[in-house]
Nucleic acid binder design. Structure first.
Length: 313
DNA sequence: GGTCGTCAAGGGGTG
DNA sequence: CACCCCTTGACGACC
């Protein structure tokens, strides 16, 4: 089994690259500057381009693109074309991704709540999903993955899960095919996600840290098979992070780096699996955390490293 | 050069 | 209902 490690959105090494500079709604309402909006989009796309080049140079095969790449794209009263004027950028970036066989995905933010009880929030969520799909489409990414959470807990878990399923079923089929659900740290645990996954036949992203925060005392070994099976022939994705510290208050927050021993323990659980797996390193120190983890793994384990970010166990 | 407040369309909890 | 908490990265103000 080959494991590829990835990181999310920005690089600590190249911290001057900002692929998510904002053009806030408030600022837009004041100035309505199409020029400013355009310059922010161009600068974000150029930063993304540089990040992809950096990933290729460092053999990073797995990368999450920032959701804030195109500001205001999902505001329904801000109508603008974020496709045609930027075609050249999408093409260049997409070509690099394709040729390097890099897997990129999205993780829409907290405003994406498919199971909300508010009609407006659900319709906004549809726009958010379409926007993310569009970007992957413009980039020419074939295996489009949008990782989302189940959402809110209004009226209890059972009803909330039902709302998720009902609203999911109303989505256009091209979006249904892209969505994967991730267990969260407070409400919907891995068993809830697997239940939904079995009903809708969608992949489950295991978040290891969230599993530690929120579980029913089940063993990871016992649910792993179902998690991986939910991906069918696709490469399963897993999120990995370590707690900021061990106090109740800060356990849920992410640490700057990865605790190597818990990572080794986790690999021990999944080794022996037939398929390849992508693991997203979610640490505040971003790519620095990834590369530090690799250095520690090389020192502490006999994993066979294929390059800077991938190994065989 | 560090620290703080602000922005955002979210949920949730308290009084 | 008001208010505060959670969360993210960028950025401007301030000392």
């Amino acid at each position: 089994m080959r494991i590829r490690l990835g990181y999310a959105c920005i690089s600590k090494t190249l911290d001057y690259l900002t692929p998510s500079s904002p053009y806030t709604y408030t600022e837009y309402l004041e100035k309505r500057s199409v020029k400013k909006l355009d310059s922010v989009i161009v600068s974000n796309l150029k930063a993304l381009h540089e990040l992809i080049l950096y990933n290729i140079k460092n053999n990073v095969h797995f990368f999450r693109v920032s959701s804030k790449l195109i500001p205001l794209a999902t505001k329904n009263d801000v109508v603008f074309n974020y496709k045609d004027p930027y075609r050249i950028y999408y093409q260049q970036i997409g070509k690099l991704i394709l040729e390097s066989n890099m897997r990129v995905d999205f993780h829409p933010d907290q405003f994406c709540v498919l199971n909300s009880t508010k009609k407006e929030v659900v319709s906004n969520t549809l726009e958010i999903l379409k926007y993310h799909y569009n970007i992957l489409d413009y980039l020419g990414v074939k295996d489009k993955i949008l990782v989302i959470h189940v959402g809110g807990n209004t009226f209890g878990k059972e009803k909330s899960i039902s709302r998720f399923i009902n609203n999911f079923n109303r989505l256009p089929s091209y979006l249904k095919k892209c969505i994967a659900i991730e267990n969260d740290d407070k409400i919907f645990n891995i068993k809830d996600c697997l239940k939904i996954s079995q009903k809708l036949d969608i992949p489950v992203v295991l978040d290891y840290h969230h599993f530690r925060c929120n579980n029913e005392q089940e063993k990871l070994e016992d649910v792993m098979k179902d998690i991986l099976a939910s991906w069918h022939n696709k490469t399963p994705k897993i999120h990995f992070s370590s707690p900021k510290n061990n106090t109740k208050k800060d356990f849920r927050s992410h640490h700057d780096y990865i605790d190597v021993d818990s990572f080794i323990k986790f690999i021990d659980i999944i080794k022996g699996v037939e398929c390849d797996i992508d693991i997203m390193i979610e640490a505040k120190a971003k790519d620095e955390a990834l590369f530090r983890l690799v250095r520690e793994l090389k020192y502490k384990t006999d994993f066979i490293f294929m390059d800077e970010t991938s190994f065989i166990v």
